[in-house]
Design a protein around this nucleic acid. Structure first.
Lengths: 333, 333
DNA sequence: CGTGGTACCGGAACCGGTTTCGGCGGCTCA
DNA sequence: TGAGCCGCCGAAACCGGTTCCGGTACCACG
């Protein structure tokens, strides 16, 4: 049971391969309307599926885009989800390739029509400069490539506003130790919100979460020194988890003692508790928009690179104390 | 600046395309040793890179495998990392495709040589049954495919032992609401460890973490009813975060009041605090092993499907109280 | 010295499409 | 009625490799 090829369709229709090819391709005026529908019917009847490889060989287009991701990170998973969904619709597929210090920088493999760079990933050596590139969620504007990024400053600002509105004016901001991915901008936005409310946030209240296996720096250390914040803005998923741990160790409760606002994965934040406010990172949209822009660049004419900033909106948690169980007063200690 | 093709190499070497092709391919006895090295030198000098597409067209092999992942989940990100690393070494690339209720089940796109199915993903309709498939981390044995999975029961057992050794005999087990991905097996292993120690774990102590936006079921509700566990085994990352939140709300501290052991992402667990014990999910190994087996099946003869179970080992946290700051006694309330 | 075998290589077909070029028939217009 | 044009289609080249088939040169052997 060999696969049915274009020649089979042509033979069945009594036409030449060329005619069959033209009839199957979209809006080719070189073929009569009657012939077109007839050939299409026959092709459908025979279950004809064009060989992507053969098409790629003759056209030079593979309908494939590559997503370069930083090795040893996994925050891009949802970005990939969004990218795949968008690519699927447009008839593209997405290849994922790690890019890191250890990853072999060879340029072998399938030829791709374009690339999405997420995070700190950079285009590898030997990249064909003529194929378009879209950068996701990185604030660099060095390359002359289109950039899709999150409204990081706004995210931080909204988080800050949320805390201010709850009169949590003695808050802290938690940034990851690598200070990348826009965390810095979010922290700045948050500080701006406090400053606007007349409750300046001194730099001593911007804490760095410790990295793996290090003695707990940041929030733990600050709490150890007797600092008692009434609010926390965690700039990333990881710092949110770190905050949860640190606050728990210090015996501070969320949200009674300290209000917790975080940026990142909405799902994870919901797991942590109903009272958390979260500014969801628009992960799926980032991927989808990036692919959309990339495909446009691949198929259309060259356009000047632009920066797209995706808006974010804070999702408030259930107001404090609205948990359904109320037996929390009788806790030991 | 056209790309250099095989014909260019052949012309430069003064041989036929056929000879050049044979010289470049590995261990082809149809060509003389002297000719081989000469052609290879010329090819290297010219910077010849074979066209994967053309190779695919004539051989039918694309050196591409596909990783089907469940849409709307992201736990496979690290599995993908491991898979990519392994594939890279073997000259393969990995294509990721979502597979879910909403995903279009079309079989179009690049032809792949094999597939890795992660989680609840199933092979899509129209899949060529002759290409091998490896299933990752799912306990189903219905398909006659090779399976690579985590030693889930053992993970739970080790977690249980760890709690028992700390004399935390009044523990609870937290399972995700979907009860999939081996969480059930881990819970069973944990229960077995307790039973072995004579501290039977009644089914009332196996709690289900609530899903998104639901009123907090599970641990929150149990704590509300006055339950005071001295240990928690969280079967997944998410339940670990949920536990952190619930325990914090109840004013219970980790690890003084409650020892927390979780299964899943080691990095995330480390963020939560130094005292957590974690049984890391061997994510990278899962992906790597899956690709390894898949490539073997693609390139070698058909072998009977087998089940590979990857071992796990608990990583104990820093013993309780060994945090560097000791000012925790003066906390309010 | 003729023959068979082997090692090595060249020519050409082939994979499955797309695209260029040329030809044929029917139309309009002079 | 003949020249020219246009719409439609067929033949063949082409993309860049792999592989089948056959041919030559050189060796050993009878």
């Amino acid at each position: 049971m060999r696969r049915v090829t274009l020649a089979d369709v042509a033979r069945a229709a009594g036409v030449a391969k060329a005619t069959a090819s033209r009839a199957l391709s979209a809006d080719n005026p070189e073929v009569g309307a009657a012939t077109r529908v007839r050939i299409r019917e026959i092709a459908a009847e025979l279950g004809y599926q064009p060989s992507v490889v053969a098409q790629a060989l003759s056209t030079g287009r593979v309908r494939l885009i590559v997503l370069f991701v930083p090795a040893a990170e996994t925050g891009w998973a949802q970005v990939l989800s969004g990218a795949m969904a968008e690519a699927e619709q447009r008839g593209y597929q997405v290849l994922v390739r790690p890019l890191g210090a250890d990853a072999p920088q060879d340029q072998a493999g399938l030829p791709v029509d374009g690339a999405v760079l997420v995070g700190r990933a950079r285009v590898p050596a030997g990249w064909d400069a003529s194929r378009p590139v879209v950068i996701v969620d990185e604030d660099l504007s060095d390359a002359d490539a289109t950039v899709v990024r999150t409204a990081n400053w706004s995210a931080g600002y909204q988080a800050g506003r949320h805390l201010v509105e709850q009169h949590r004016t003695s808050a802290v901001v938690l940034v990851p130790h690598h200070r990348a991915g826009g965390a810095q901008a979010r922290a700045a936005g948050c500080q701006a919100a406090f400053a606007e409310a007349g409750a300046e946030l001194p730099s001593g209240r911007v804490l760095e979460a410790g990295r793996d296996a290090e003695p707990r720096a940041g929030l733990d250390a600050a709490l150890g020194r007797g600092l008692r914040p009434d609010g926390v803005f965690a700039c990333t998923d990881e710092t949110a988890v770190a905050a949860l741990g640190s606050l728990g160790r210090a015996g501070l409760r969320v949200p009674e003692d300290v209000a917790l606002v975080c940026f990142g994965d909405e799902h994870l934040a919901r797991q942590a508790g109903p009272s958390l406010a979260v500014v969801p990172r628009p992960v799926a949209e980032l991927g989808a928009r990036a692919v959309q822009l990339l495909v446009r660049a691949i198929e259309g004419a060259a356009e000047p690179p632009e920066v797209h900033e995706l808006p974010v909106r804070l999702v408030a948690g259930v107001p404090q104390g609205r948990s359904e169980h109320a037996a929390r007063g009788s806790v030991s200690a």
